[in-house]
Design a protein around this nucleic acid. Structure first.
Lengths: 126, 126
DNA sequence: GTAAAACTTGACGTTGACGTCAAAGGCAAA
DNA sequence: TTTGCCTTTGACGTCAACGTCAAGTTTTAC
């Protein structure tokens, strides 16, 4: 498939796909005229890339780790990198959960204040 | 306390603290000569701000929500905003957990490959 | 065969959260 | 009083992950 179809099927722009290639996150065959052609596996690859981006990894980190993730093979150093990233992610998730809980308690507090008719700093007229 | 001490005690730079003030996330008393002076509560406030940043909120969003979080009071609209952000956060956490699990299985796969002596693309010499 | 759509590279623009000087004034210790 | 760190505002720099033209080529549709 060509770049437009891959973009449609993954929901990322063609600009982003070319950027990923530039960052060595993605490779493509080229037709005689120079157009990119992708295999079906590229769709999953893009999803993986997006997932790692969402996990807070940089393109540089992703570029270093993806051969390992794709092939399931790694040097001890890469394996260590992966474990480190996993731990960072785990910590991050825990922090976010704490933030969510804090938001929850804020929402609870604000709701009960509203039910008891407590005044609001943004609307102290009533 | 002055800005330097607040920076040391919170681990954020003075530049960031001034930036937070510029974005209306933080206020400070001013001495006659114009220097900023902060109350003890500022330390917690900074931690809250950092926490919300880590949750993926923008300075604009934080500026809109923090009076509510600080005071525990809100208009219905603010409450709705909070609930929306909470849901986004919840979804984000779930996505990250999925990514973490994927990393876990990658690490497992790579580890077993190594134990069985499977070759690595980065070190195919052995 | 031709027009529209898709593709190419190249290059400059954008945004958020600061970093990094610079030039000036403020403040506590010796 | 002078030394030396602290603080002030202002303004330009940075970095990642793209957005957005531009100008030209290729493929597709009729």
């Amino acid at each position: 498939m060509r770049i437009g179809e891959l973009a449609r099927r993954t929901g990322v722009t063609t600009r982003a796909l070319r950027y990923y290639e530039e960052q060595n996150l993605l490779t493509a065959e080229r037709s005689a005229s120079g157009q990119r052609h992708y295999a079906e596996t590229a769709v999953d690859r893009i999803h993986l890339i997006r997932q790692l981006y969402a996990a807070g990894l940089s393109s540089k980190t992703i570029a270093e780790l993806t051969p390992c993730v794709i092939d399931g093979k790694a040097t001890p150093e890469l394996l260590q990198r992966l474990a480190t990233e996993r731990d960072h992610l785990d910590r991050h998730i825990a922090d976010l959960a704490q933030t969510r809980d804090r938001l929850d308690s804020v929402i609870d507090g604000a709701s009960s204040n509203m039910q008891t008719g407590a005044p609001c700093p943004r609307d102290a007229s009533a």
